[in-house]
Design a protein around this nucleic acid. Structure first.
Lengths: 162, 162
DNA sequence: CAATAGTCTGACCAACTTTGACCTTTCGCG
DNA sequence: CGCGAAAGGTCAAAGTTGGTCAGACTATTG
């Protein structure tokens, strides 16, 4: 970070690129932009790999962005801003509750509570339990809690959406 | 890729040919078109083998297309669009298609097809891709295809249910 | 001011596209 | 039937992107 004159602050190059891309996203009608890595690198006079750094650190799924790329002729980088954004809402509470791992017992308890509170229907409760059981069994013991957490979060996110 | 005017991006030649053929397919009543390779190559001013490349990469069975050809005088290329859901056991077809493991590439192809056939919405497509991306990366390479398969089946089952 | 975390670059890698030389199949004609 | 013309097929090389990663450099923090 560099200070110039009175309080004018120049952030890092990555910050500039991030701001530029987010501005483009705001102006894009479909919540999506397509760029070329080489072109963007030329615009900011930096190494192309710098663009990857910005994408890796600032446009992650956790922050609500999906990045798709293609190499070769006609290659591109597409950044999609999710209409479903992670925030301080019910879902992020669920995410924190579940964490990266969850035992079958804790998952069961959570589901019971969600059903009692009518956040999921009885049908959905049964369905989710069945899927967790069936899919989880395919993995070795020490991965089961992690797979269970991923599955549970994915399914609840779909159900609780919007 | 060529940039023209204000941010309009022209994709590769293969993309053009793909779009052209898909437009023809949409306009064809029987979900099927017949073309001549040489003729199409002349229309796009490219090598005839370029047409094969497009067919091999974009009109695969995974993406829901069947391609039949015939050489010699009166030769042709026929592209048939396969429809996904005829039977009521659609979900088990999906389960079989996905199997116990699925690569990111095949998952992408399948999701594109499901979106094109209006079985999932564009929003759901983006959502599923993001979840797959985010959750899958928490596991070592060796498990990713298996985790991806479990997640994909779980989410599609929830969406397609009812 | 030392330790830690964040940024940036360049050399090397992987994926996708396009072309062209050469091959195989089919049809029509003698 | 044999042959040549008229399709389409295959494959490898060259071209055009974006990806990765270790290490140098910079900023922040205790």
């Amino acid at each position: 970070m560099v200070r110039l004159l009175e309080g004018i602050i120049l952030s890092s190059l990555s910050d500039f690129i991030e701001k530029y891309l987010k501005q483009m996203l705001r102006e894009a009608a479909e919540g999506m932009i397509m760029i070329q890595r080489r072109e963007l690198a030329e615009m900011f006079e930096c190494a192309p790999s710098q663009i990857n750094y910005v994408l890796d650190t600032r446009f992650t799924p956790d922050r609500g962005y999906l990045v798709e790329t293609r190499r070769g002729g006609g290659g591109y980088i597409r950044i999609v801003r999710l209409s479903f954004r992670p925030g301080r809402d019910f879902l992020s509470v669920l995410d924190e509750t579940i964490g990266d791992e969850i035992t079958a017992r804790r998952a069961e308890g959570l589901l019971v509570r969600l059903e009692e509170e009518s956040i999921v229907t009885l049908d959905e409760y049964v369905f989710i339990k069945t899927v967790l059981d069936r899919e989880t069994r395919k993995f070795p013991d020490h991965y089961r809690d992690r797979v269970r957490a991923s599955l549970l979060k994915a399914m609840l996110a779909l159900l609780v959406r919007e």
